[in-house]
Write a protein that binds this DNA or RNA. Structure first.
Lengths: 145, 145
DNA sequence: TTAATAAAAGACAAAATTGTCCTTAATTAA
DNA sequence: TTAATTAAGGACAATTTTGTCTTTTATTAA
């Protein structure tokens, strides 16, 4: 469904949201320790997200990544689009470039419904909602406890 | 969502279903011409599907690929599982190996719903239903007209 | 039996994705 | 101002996916 990069991105952002605000940051090492993701690869992904203002970063002593209150209100869809693009939300299920209502692929209508539901789900799920549940211990980000 | 291999697989199988039966076959060249897929790559995929009895194949003069009436009644889910495996139907949205009801990832429930709907959709969509619509001109398999 | 045909199979090659390592730039505490 | 710290950035490597080409095997029509 999503690329590895996108999976790491969502996990990293939710973790950052759960641990930071305008006054408190976390470093890449701590992030990756808590989401079990490759450090340098994840750092690259967070660079992208930082450039797109989905996360904030600060270099130097006491630097790190953080999300402010505005960023925490954003939806998961923003993260996915920043990392994987929008094909998962709008693309044809069979990879046809010109799939449309007038020239539909064989599964056009069925697939459109799934895609639209996925889109709505990702739009209506906010980063902070997930961060709060994580803090309550109602969800996990690591493969192994 | 699906790999390129899986997209080609579905397109190829629907085309084969629309053109063949126990008495009539199509060759790999004709298949690929009609679904705009790379010939040798698609041939490999069809070998896999043939080994898994999702399509039939016959070597030699007047050989080719075909689907019998039993195979045409199968669902798309079989094709996807044969090519991409079952992760798209059962895997965690964030790539956690140990995501479960008791240790859910942050989007576990929302994602499970999407996954289940996708599964049902692919289970309830049969190859012959798509082949029939294709024959009626109600859907297309090519990128360009 | 032979020649033609068509899928199977294997060897590669290209491209994309994933992952690692090292250097650079920015920041701050001392 | 200096040293320590931390993200940014670039180069590169490994792996996976996608795609191509050639040879082999099976089948059948002549």
């Amino acid at each position: 469904m999503f690329s590895k990069a996108c999976e790491y991105a969502i996990r990293a952002v939710v973790y950052i949201a759960s641990e930071t605000d305008e006054t408190k940051k976390v470093g890449i090492q701590e992030i990756c320790d808590h989401i079990e993701a490759p450090q340098h690869f994840t750092a690259k992904i967070l660079q992208t997200l930082s450039r797109k203002h989905i996360v904030n970063s600060q270099k130097g002593v006491n630097g790190g990544f953080f999300l402010d209150s505005v960023q925490k209100k954003k939806s998961l869809k923003n993260i996915v689009e920043a990392v994987d693009g929008d094909q998962v939300f709008v693309g044809c299920g069979l990879g046809l470039k010109q799939c449309s209502e007038t020239k539909p692929c064989p599964i056009h209508n069925q697939f459109k419904d799934i895609r639209n539901r996925l889109t709505k789900m990702m739009e209506s799920t906010t980063i902070d909602a997930l961060a709060i549940r994580l803090l309550k211990g109602e969800s996990v980000l690591m493969q192994t406890k």
